[in-house]
Design a protein around this nucleic acid. Structure first.
Lengths: 336, 336
DNA sequence: CTGAAAGCGCTTACAG
DNA sequence: CTGAAAGCGCTTACAG
């Protein structure tokens, strides 16, 4: 039913090798022959069979993105960056969802084993040194996005520094009892952000208090949900004495937190993390994370490695920027 | 470097046919032989070459999702539905981004031509009858998501009815000058939603006025952006007399619209369209669109067709539900 | 510039 | 239950 290269060759009165060359090394075919073949190709609606091409040429022209939890903004921004970077290259993109965190490693390993692709982008997947070394054994080009390691190329973000800046900002405005609206304690972003929060307190001579680390009960997406933020802010509002400012570990959570504040008619200074598009519209002060850029740069890096496998491992770290809006400004400042 | 079926066969002391059978028709291999092969496979870290398998078996076990504009919530929700539906099946998912609207048809046609996959999901792609018929010629299983046609299977949403319900709701609350916060005029969702808006006015004896159809200037993503909503609401607020309620054509736009309202300290009743997760947290009354379900159901439908190509074309239409929150409630009602 | 032929790594009747 | 062999639809030295 579907046309093959033989059908085209016969109809054009040439060999299959010539038809193949028209697609792959057009210059080496006499212009008239090329035209003739192309004409037949067009008439008969032929398209090379991708699998046969891949098998024969040992090229796949495909890169695979592996990532957990699709339904979030971070993912789509990174994806856009990847696609824009890929747009100029002759690669197809496959997306594989890494489901349950528990055996994320096995899911990734299984995918790498299949060797569908020339290269792989591991997005927001955090593995131990040991696991990464095991993945390295598959000997396929990999670039980590939103994770750091010296074993693979990586494009990451300095979460610790972001949290530090946000917390320091609140401190410099005079706040002393600063709560941190946290998420799953052993998730990598939370670890790093908590570290930055603590360092800021420490360097400004404020004692860290475990009671100011507050988490919601909803643990979907590691607790990075609106609901979790809402729950956590309600806990904060139930504290006595109330904290005088809040560093929230994600904009999504901050949306929930703002709802709780509104319901309680309380105006606590709130700074958050991510800088989603929506944040501008809800007046959220936040730490900007260049998600699109990270996806774009990581893809460039991966493609460079495909062209030149002997490149040294390279790690690119993106730095945070504060974006200040009304959530920290239109509130009563502390007057000492 | 990479192991082949020959390496395994040799190491296990069997033929390649037997190794192949272990993977494909395990029952027909003697248990001891199977164990022996599996042991070698495991030791040597073998995995069948997907392209060679596909070429030889003429199966691909792959479905492709084609969709425009990745970076939106609709897309990710649908995607989640697709993935969950696929999780139980032995299919891989590929995602192809359809970029510029102008030649969306060609992009889709090119992708179908490649025949990577057994089946295709066309998400939020709106083609003319003529174009769909042309796509039909490729003779590959297709299911439309968020579009309706009798040429292919489809899972769609009744936009007209959704807009009708939202507008009627405002009318029944006593509002008469109801503005519609619109987007790209010739986009399919806008056409249908405008139709529903007009029908509601008509059936309740309210005259339609072109001046109450307001659009922002930002036309990215067909005008379905926060910015566009913000701009449009500012135009509404500049009207004299002011409209007394607003039907907004998407939650994303409503986020921008709410910002404008807040800045002007005006409290206009606002009902919107989509029911994003965030909408609950910003108190947005809206029309619920079951995006996840649509993705899930469409995938089921496609897979059924793969199993049984002679199935009659089937069209599933999902119906809207109003979700009422504070944006239409905590505002002054009209007292006649 | 072009063709004949080998080969990519599998699957699957066919025979035994 | 298992193997030898043909074939899937291409690409690419090799030779001319």
């Amino acid at each position: 039913m579907s046309k093959t290269i033989y059908d085209i060759a016969k109809a054009a009165g040439v060999s299959i090798a010539t038809v193949s060359r028209v697609f792959n090394q057009a210059e080496s075919v006499k212009p008239e022959t090329r035209e003739k073949v192309l004409k037949v190709v067009d008439e008969m609606g032929y398209h090379p069979h991708v699998y046969a091409q891949g098998l024969a040429s040992k090229k796949k022209n495909r890169i695979v993105m592996l990532a957990p939890v699709m339904s979030n903004y971070f993912f789509t921004e990174v994806l856009k960056g990847i696609q824009d970077s890929l747009a100029e290259e002759n690669y197809e993109l496959n997306i594989v969802n890494i489901g349950h965190k528990k055996d994320a490693y096995n899911q990734v390993a299984e995918t790498l084993k299949k060797r569908w692709a020339e290269g792989y982008l591991l997005v927001s997947l955090h593995f131990s040194e040991k696991e990464l070394k095991a993945l390295q054994k598959f000997n396929v080009p990999v670039c980590l996005v939103d994770d750091f390691s010296t074993i693979f190329d990586s494009v990451s973000f300095n979460n610790e520094e972001g949290a530090y800046l946000a917390t320091e900002y609140l401190i410099e405005k005079g706040f002393k009892r600063i709560a941190i609206l946290s998420a799953k304690a052993d998730s990598i972003p939370i670890r790093d952000r908590l570290k930055g929060y603590k360092r800021a307190l420490d360097e400004h001579g404020i004692e860290f208090s475990e009671s100011l680390v507050v988490t919601g009960d909803d643990m979907a997406r590691d607790g990075f949900t609106e609901l979790s933020g809402y729950e956590a802010m309600n806990k904060i509002l139930a504290m006595d004495p109330l904290s005088d400012a809040v560093f929230c570990t994600s904009d999504t959570k901050a949306v929930g937190a703002q709802k709780a504040l509104k319901e309680h008619k309380v105006d606590l200074p709130l700074i958050s993390f991510d800088n989603l598009t929506i944040s501008e519209y809800i007046g959220l002060s936040t730490v900007n994370q260049p998600m699109y850029d990270m996806g774009f740069r990581a893809t460039n890096k991966l493609i460079q490695r495909l062209h030149n496998p002997d490149l040294r491992i390279s790690n690119e770290v993106h730095h945070p920027e504060l974006v200040i809006r009304s959530s920290t400004e239109n509130v009563n400042e502390v007057t000492t």
